[in-house]
Design a protein around this nucleic acid. Structure first.
Lengths: 282, 282
DNA sequence: ACAGTCCGTTTGTCGGACAATTCCAATTAC
DNA sequence: GTAATTGGAATTGTCCGACAAACGGACTGT
């Protein structure tokens, strides 16, 4: 019986609760947005469960009493907000957006707002040591293995560079980022991991500026090694301390490049286009 | 001359680089997504500037060589990702997503992943004191005025409650949230503000659980007052210390409700539906 | 200068159509 | 009996054409 009423669209037709002198702002949302809102509510309320396929477009159109095109536009909104996931040409399925996916678009927004390197560094001085500290108490076997592999790869890269091979800056920065990302994901706190993600993303352009100029590859690797050792030993204060030093190194290196801390990270220094393109191709 | 080539769509038609035995996975992104990618690139590259109106749908359809419906679906993706903004029935305009908008959907994602109160509290113990500390050095006249008004409103509310009036829990939690949000926005660091936003969002359901049970209204107000006084005096360490106490109070209160710190904040316990609906109706 | 009117443009929505896939189930081959 | 095939129904992606409503701007009358 409730089958028909599962999905209902609500035109927010401002009821007769208008004041006498003041008229409340008249709100007209397009139908495709109402479709989006309605389906979103069903998902958040749990009536449409994660993993289930989305009802067919024609069926939705019929239930909502709108055209299929309108329903499709609403579904696009859901798609971009991560609440439905389509895999190839298959039926789109209800899904829970992974918080880290959303963080990548947040970092894009930050770049467009031209945050400065100082802001990035300050935030990382707050977050990274806290994450390292907690990671010492929460890391598991797999996390340690991942970190170990990451350090091994970076070691190989650094030794290659020191024997004269041209540096693969992109690859190195990627390894650096991966190290910090692993830490965030094993620190046992998803809120911190989410808060941290834009920081790692923004470090990529910053790293690409610094590393080729100052060649601090070995120094980065050593810091990672010390942190790793602390994690193995379960030494939370040590992990925090080393991470703190590691981050402060980064600021000093940036200052040595003669770039002001208050210059903004702009989209030109990017890889940004690649970054977002990747984010959408799940 | 470049007028025609400003917007170009790239079908990723995997060239003839297929191996002999292995066929590389053919990738078919739907056209509406290619439209999205193409326009996004133009915006990030700065060829479509913020504030400009988006080209007309028919024009885009013609340039891309696809149907207008397809273009429209692509625009919906842009819309949800915040890169275009439509105000009423007017021409949609290119816009830069405000990072805080994106954070609200991130906090929704966190709820769906059932983060625990402990995670929320830990993250706030890291972020809130750091923000308070920085706010002491950066706050301006307007920020102080906003905080002052916020505290005045909360004072009125608390005094009303203490004279027997029934407590407006929703209103109080809203004021509490606003206080912390103002702080984040005047701390002079947008990365921290972004990282902080999901924390304030998630505190709303938590506050609604705690406050009516323990009636710690006065205690919250006092903490806000102490912090405010430190900000006025430019006392950064003091602001940090009081915020630290304020957050720790919150944990203790939560424990007193006999709820485990490791219970998750679920969508049911919160006006999440309202929250997101509000977020979209900018 | 200002208000009102007219008209082209643009968006929102509708209806229908069709190719390409996917899904599912019955059928066939072993 | 089980596995492979095949055929049709369902579904998505895309296209076409159409129209009402709202917006923007020019034009006009006062």
């Amino acid at each position: 019986m409730a089958e028909r009423a599962i999905l209902e669209i609500t035109r927010h037709s401002q009821g007769p609760d208008v004041q006498e002198h003041e008229f409340s702002r008249i709100e007209r949302a397009p139908a495709y947005r109402l479709v989006y809102d309605a389906i979103e509510r069903q998902i958040l309320a749990g009536r449409l469960r994660v993993g289930d396929p989305l009802p067919a477009e024609t069926q939705l159109a019929e239930q909502f009493g709108v055209n299929r095109s309108t329903v499709r536009e609403g579904i696009r909104l859901l798609e971009q907000s991560g609440l439905v996931e389509r895999d190839g040409g298959k039926r789109p399925r209800i899904s829970v957006p992974h918080y880290l996916d959303l963080a990548s678009s947040a970092s894009r927004a930050l770049i467009l707002h031209m945050v400065t390197f100082r802001e990035l560094w300050e935030a990382s001085m707050v977050l990274e040591p806290a994450i390292a500290e907690r990671a010492a108490g929460h890391i598991d076997e797999k996390g340690l293995a991942d970190l170990s592999a990451n350090i091994a790869a970076m070691t190989a890269e650094v030794e290659g560079i020191e024997t004269g091979r041209p540096a693969d800056v992109y690859g190195f920065v990627g390894l650096d980022r991966a190290f910090h990302e692993i830490l965030a994901n094993v620190c046992g706190n998803r809120v911190l991991a989410l808060a941290h993600e834009p920081v790692t993303s923004l470090f990529i352009p910053a790293g690409r500026i610094i590393l080729p100029r100052l060649k601090t590859y070995r120094r980065v690797l050593d810091a990672h090694r010390y942190i790793f050792d602390c994690l193995v030993a379960g030494d939370a204060p040590g992990a925090r301390t080393w991470m703190h030093k590691h981050m402060d190194d980064f600021r000093r290196a940036y200052e040595l490049t003669a770039l002001s801390l208050d210059t903004s990270l702009d989209a030109a220094s990017l890889g940004m286009v690649n970054g977002t393109a990747q984010a959408h191709s799940r």
